[in-house]
């Protein structure tokens, strides 16, 4: 195992040895089953609302209220709620070294600063991927187990119904894509983390950027159209794109490419910031 791989592994050990890392996993494990049980017990009346046009001429056989539908709606947490679990770790991963005074020990190892910061960055993505896939696994798995499986109804340029066999691969693609979207947030928090020795600043700073970006992206002001392509939240809807027919791979690739550019910019700035950092503790 090369020293660089060891660094990544060690960073992951550090991430998963902190209790705050498990806040996200714990919240998912409490919230998702609770929602599933509530839906199973009380139901949701979505098909009568969504398929109102058909009610005069058609009867329904079966129901679209199932675990997949609940999981699909739960993906809405990825917009603004879920990033909290990402910034909690990404905002802490560099700043906490400064706060605890471990930078000097860390940098005595035979690794360049570039390798150290890159190892931390990769570990942040591994955590991001893990928690996003965990959300997907718990959401879809417990959804099917508690509420039941079946067809998935989605609202995407109309009403689309997918069989369970069609829906499950789309969920997998959606969550993989969502991990990149979440990593954009993580990369920004990571950048802020290289500027400070306190994790609170990066967490609040990242959320401030997200909220301001959302506001700018929804305001119906013509002048704002010009800046929207430069807001990373503009491309955040990419995780719903796999629920199209057929799957628009090109659109997904383009949007992921744009998010990737943001990630690379934040990463590059983080590297520069860390290499130039004056470490006194």
């Amino acid at each position: 195992m090369t020293p660089f791989i060891k660094t990544i592994r060690w960073e992951l050990v550090k991430i998963f040895s902190k209790w705050r890392t498990y806040i996200g996993f714990g919240t998912i494990l409490i919230l998702v089953p609770l929602i599933m049980v509530l839906v199973r017990k009380y139901g949701i009346d979505i098909e009568n609302e969504a398929l109102r046009s058909f009610q005069g001429a058609f009867d329904y056989i079966g129901s679209v209220t199932n675990g997949l539908l609940v999981s699909y709606f739960l993906m809405n947490v990825l917009w603004i709620h879920f990033p909290f679990f990402i910034v909690l770790v990404a905002g802490d991963i560099v700043a906490s070294e400064g706060a605890s005074g471990t930078f000097r020990i860390l940098l005595t190892r035979p690794l360049s600063r570039f390798e150290v910061i890159t190892g931390k960055f990769i570990a942040t993505y591994v955590y991001t991927l893990a928690i996003v896939l965990f959300l997907g696994l718990v959401s879809v798995g417990l959804g099917i187990a508690i509420v039941g499986g079946g067809d998935l109804l989605v609202f995407n340029k109309g009403i689309l119904i997918f069989s369970q066999g069609e829906a499950l691969p789309r969920f997998l693609i959606a969550y993989l894509v969502a991990s990149v979207m979440q990593m954009t947030v993580g990369a920004l928090a990571f950048l802020f983390s290289t500027w400070t020795s306190n994790a609170v600043g990066p967490i609040i700073g990242t959320y401030a950027v997200i909220v301001v970006s959302y506001i700018l992206s929804v305001l119906q002001i013509d002048a704002l159209q010009a800046i929207r392509p430069y807001l990373f939240v503009t491309y955040f809807n990419v995780f719903f794109v796999p629920f199209n027919v057929p799957v628009p791979w090109r659109m997904i690739a383009v949007q992921l490419g744009k998010l990737g550019i943001f990630i690379l910019i934040f990463y590059a700035l983080s590297v520069v910031s860390f290499i130039r950092k004056d470490i006194k503790t």
Binding site: L51, A57, F58, D59, Y60, I61, G62, S163, Q164
Partner: peptide, 11 residues
């Protein structure tokens, strides 16, 4: 009726 999922049938 037994269906693998959701189905619309003419009234």
């Amino acid at each position: 009726f037994k269906s693998s999922g959701f189905l619309l049938m003419p009234k």
